[in-house]
Design a protein around this nucleic acid. Structure first.
Length: 905
RNA sequence: GGGCGAUUAACUCAGCGGUAGAGUGCCACCUUCACACGGUGGAAGUCGCAGGUUCAAGUCCUGCAUCGCCCACCA
């Protein structure tokens, strides 16, 4: 006799909150989710977990996408794979920098020496108001950063544990920690050695507020009001034309004028020189296919630098450089009449320019426009038309146009010439290599889920227009590990950087001296200077697979963990995180960083906007976890397919909670059934039970196939459907009488109990990746001991092989027919106004003749479940095979009689 | 301006070449001994619009519309 499970030992209701705490502790103690470093790469499933920005807040978006990954991960673990599921914290970047500054009321100055004993306490309002920020070294700043983010990390870990992420918590990192700095700097050295990294002084997109260079990926267009200014230029030798510009303040930086080669209006001017108004600089007029005859007046001024096209013309036409905008966005002093700034009338040019010096772009524009209204500003001289009319031909015409901004910045980006480090991404004919084409190829080697997300990567990569600028003029971040020698005359030689060795990493060139130099030689002739810049945060983030694999630090581990199997992420950072990670893996090792990218969609609020804190539509995860339980919340998350944006809907959470309750009760019920002798799957002898198992087999097959395609939502839906409609609504009801032994059939009883237990066993495992707490709870009641597997999450994923010993039913649809007849009887009862529980004294069941023999095996169970005392089966050929069963007459016993009536055997 | 996706019952979503599906909500009935966080039954959709391919189209193709996202050299 199976040991009878005593359901009375269980509480009447499932206490989710206490189960969540209990199981988290037990999994933790047992190391249930630990990666086994002894097993090889082929047995291992490696997750490249996205490191959340720890200074951000916790929201449902985290719960949503991290649950997706966890579901996939748990299923793989059950499939026997050695799962590597790490967690990182992204504390490298502006948000953290700001938090640290504010929290401790400090500022970082990388030139300061490290103070080992520095004690700084969190600042209060008082200190923030009355004192100036304390200035600290970069190393001290990083220490403070760890203190602030440590708290955030705890909050994130608590949430992630609460929702049951099966992370190996021994495998964690923070993007600013020693190992990450080491690996980022090592990446830099490796790229230098491979010739994929260079430093150059060149026009770069520049944020004038943050005063740092930015990369293409950090740039976004914003629709801003602007205005076309029609400005007349004179032509040397006579004539004039009008250009339309939105940036008249760049007039002093004008180095050329250009129109389309086929544009008849300007053809005759090509090769001549134009003369700019106000500053009277002679500039070349040239033809270019890039000029659009339909835009503005078809002819335009080229300035250093107004936009990226200016840069390409500057390069291709070998135009002079006349930079006027400084790093802070103001106009620098220049002298007209010099070689750099030629002018036909230097006196007036300088007079006009003098009032612009030190002004910002907006102010300068205003002043220039004022001057353009002045006829005296017009071109003058013998061969030109005199200044009889103002060069501004009309009032500015307001337009809305896209203007490039740093994604975190306020003011438009400028193109400023600075020295920066770049990673090669664009094709380089001189070097005979085409990284862009290789990147496109790598994108095709990776599988994207859903597939169409690959298009986003492809479009971005195909549209690259610059190499990756990786240096940032910030002070918090991973320092660029480079020094520059200073020659005897005190001139810094940027062309011969001094690099550290890999053994010396991580270094901070602002506080560490390069090998062979003494710290005293910093800044001295014959000495060195450190590069003050830090890396773009993506330079480090793009190494998450290598950070986890300890690339360059532990070759054996790296071989076991790289490349990863899945990179989960969201779609808006395909062009950054996914792209840069692919670029790094390709440049370092010629490989892809992972085999699959799985993209989660967004949570939208009911108005279909992305949920975000600023809009104030965020629901806090903890409140929902308390109300619907972790399993309930996970159910909601797992219901959404990959790549699909989903409106937040609390109804789905309710459904999840209901599922948990139903599982608890069904589990309790099934395990409380017992029978004499063997109730292992071998005891499943009854036709209906075998037909039911047959259907279960189909479920195992379908869900496994769905998981193989990362279609966890499909697997969940199928499992849920089976559990609810096949098991609890039908099978459980049909075999209740037999399982209690009231049918007087010991073999039948054993068969029913065995099938119930098997179904529960299989279903609990199929549900385990989705609702880990309730499934673990049920598993612990009986299966854990029986199987010698303490955790369902370490139990094998159900397989067809496991179900193979149970013989197939004589007819696979006998269970389905039983369900159909049961439903027909219930329907008739309901229509007759009786409850389903009422006893039926007699019923006439009609069906197609062909169905008669096939219903036979199920008849006993159905009549018992429907409490039918006597029945008549009649064949009705008029009923097609599809018509199923029709209850022609039914006689329902009076209410009082129901309990005492003996049931038919 | 280009690309990608979405548009199916009141709501949230499945289905993606063979007679419209689920859950929720709604209506009726049922205090049925695992579960009222339950059960049984029911009503509810011209599958965004217009063409086309096909014996057959939410399902494939072509336009269009609406919404969302990504991108684009800002004169």
């Amino acid at each position: 006799m199976t040991k009878p499970f005593d359901p009375s030992s269980l509480p009447a209701h499932f206490d989710a909150a206490s189960a969540e705490r209990r199981w988290d502790a037990r999994w933790s103690e047992a190391g249930a989710y630990h990666w086994d470093d002894r097993r090889g790469r082929d047995e291992t499933f490696v997750v490249d977990t996205p490191p959340p920005t720890v200074s951000g807040s916790l929201h449902m978006g985290h719960v949503f996408s991290y649950t997706h990954t966890d579901v996939l991960t748990r299923q793989r673990r059950m499939r026997g794979q050695n799962v590597f599921y790490p967690m990182g914290w992204d504390d490298n970047g502006l948000p953290t920098e700001r938090r640290v500054q504010n929290f401790f009321h400090v500022k970082c100055d990388p030139t300061l020496p490290y103070e080992p004993e520095l004690a700084i306490e969190p600042a209060d309002e008082q200190r923030r108001k009355s004192e100036r920020p304390r200035v600290v070294s970069r190393k001290n700043f990083i220490e403070l950063c760890h203190r602030v983010t440590g708290e955030d990390e705890k909050a994130f870990e608590a949430l992630f544990r609460r929702i049951g992420l099966s992370v190996d918590w021994r495998q964690t990192y923070a993007t600013i920690d020693d190992r990450c700095r080491h690996i980022a700097q090592q990446s830099f050295l490796d790229l230098v050695e491979k010739g994929q990294l260079y430093n150059v002084e060149a026009p770069t997109m520049w944020d004038v507020d943050f005063q740092t260079a930015v990369a293409q990926a950090e740039v976004e267009d914003r629709e801003k009001p602007g205005a076309f200014h029609d400005i007349e230029f004179a032509v040397e030798g006579g004539g004039s034309f009008v250009i339309a510009t939105t940036r008249p303040e760049l007039l002093p930086a004008c180095v050329g004028v250009c129109a389309h080669p086929e544009d008849d209006r300007y053809k005759s001017y090509f090769g001549k020189r134009a003369v700019t108004p106000i500053f009277r600089a002679p500039v070349r007029i040239f033809a270019s296919e890039l000029a659009d005859p339909k835009k503005g007046t078809g002819i335009l001024m080229v300035c250093t630098f107004g936009d990226a096209t200016d840069v390409s013309w500057w390069r291709s036409e070998k135009l002079p450089l006349r930079a006027i905008i400084r790093r802070d966005g103001t106009l620098r002093p220049v002298t007209f009449g010099s070689d750099e700034f030629p002018s036909l009338d230097p006196r007036r040019a300088n007079e006009a320019y003098a009032e612009l010096v030190g002004k910002g772009v907006t102010q300068a524009r205003k002043l220039i426009v004022e001057r353009l209204h002045d006829p005296a500003s017009g071109a003058t001289g013998e061969e030109h038309r005199g200044g009889e009319r103002a060069p501004l031909m009309a009032d500015p015409k307001p337009i809305q146009h896209p203007v490039k901004h740093y994604e975190k910045g306020e003011r438009p980006l400028e193109l400023v010439t600075t020295r920066q480090w770049f990673v090669r991404l664009l094709p380089d004919a001189a070097r005979g290599e085409d990284n862009q084409a290789r990147l496109l190829e790598k994108g095709r080697e990776i599988r994207w889920w859903p597939e169409f997300m690959h298009t986003r990567y492809h479009n971005w990569t195909a549209g690259l227009n610059s190499d990756w600028c990786v240096s940032r003029q910030r002070y918090f971040g991973v320092p660029i590990p480079v020094w520059y020698p200073i020659d005897a005359h005190g001139v810094t030689d940027f062309d011969h950087p001094i690099y550290p060795t890999r053994e010396e990493l991580p270094v901070d060139p602002m506080s560490d001296a390069p090998r062979g130099f003494d710290e005293k030689m910093r800044g001295e002739p014959g000495g060195f200077v450190g590069d003050p810049d830090v890396f773009d945060t993506w330079f480090t983030s793009s190494l998450t697979p290598q950070i986890s694999s300890h690339w360059g630090l532990d070759p054996e581990r790296h071989a076991k963990l790289f490349p990863a199997d899945i990179r989960p992420q969201s779609h808006e950072i395909i062009r950054t995180w996914a792209f840069y990670t692919i670029a790094k893996a390709m440049l370092h090792e010629g490989r892809v960083p992972w085999r699959n990218v799985v993209i989660s969609g967004w949570i939208l609020d009911p108005d279909r906007k992305k949920m975000s804190k600023s809009v104030g539509n965020v629901v806090t995860p903890m409140k929902l976890l308390e109300e619907y339980s972790a399993d309930g919340v996970r159910y909601w998350a797992a219901s959404a397919r990959l790549g699909t944006d989903t409106a937040f809907d609390e109804k789905v959470l309710k459904v999840g909670k209901r599922l948990v309750t139903k599982l608890f009760n069904a589990g309790k019920y099934v395990l409380s059934q017992s029978a004499e002798g063997d109730v292992s799957p071998h005891a499943i002898t009854h036709e209906i039970d075998r037909a039911f198992v047959w259907e279960l087999r189909g479920l195992v097959e379908a869900t496994s196939a769905a998981f193989a395609e990362f279609e966890y939502a499909q697997a969940l839906m199928l499992t849920e459907q089976f559990f609810w409609s096949r098991l609890t609504d039908n099978y459980l009801e049909l075999v209740k009488v037999r399982a209690r032994g009231e049918a007087g059939d010991p073999d039948g009883r054993r068969s029913a109990v065995a099938a119930l237990r098997l179904a529960l066993d299989v279903l609990i495992r199929l549900f385990a990746p989705f609702v880990p707490f309730i499934t673990e709870e049920i598993w612990s009641w009986s299966f854990a001991e029986e199987r010698g597997t303490p955790f369902v999450h370490r139990a094998p994923w159900p397989s067809l092989a496991e179900l193979a010993p149970i013989p197939s039913p004589a007819s696979p649809d006998s269970f389905a027919l039983g369900c159909a007849l049961f439903a027909a009887l219930n329907k008739k009862k309901t229509e007759s106004g009786a409850s389903v529980g009422r006893v039926v004294t007699s019923a006439t069941i009609a069906a197609n003749e062909a169905l008669m023999p096939r219903i036979e095996p199920a008849l006993g169970d159905v009549l018992a479940a429907a409490k039918v005392k006597s029945h008549t089966l009649v064949a009705r050929e008029a009923l097609g095979l599809d018509a199923g069963f029709v209850i022609e007459t039914i006689e329902i016993a009076p209410k009082e009689a129901k309990a005492e009536e003996p049931l038919p055997s």
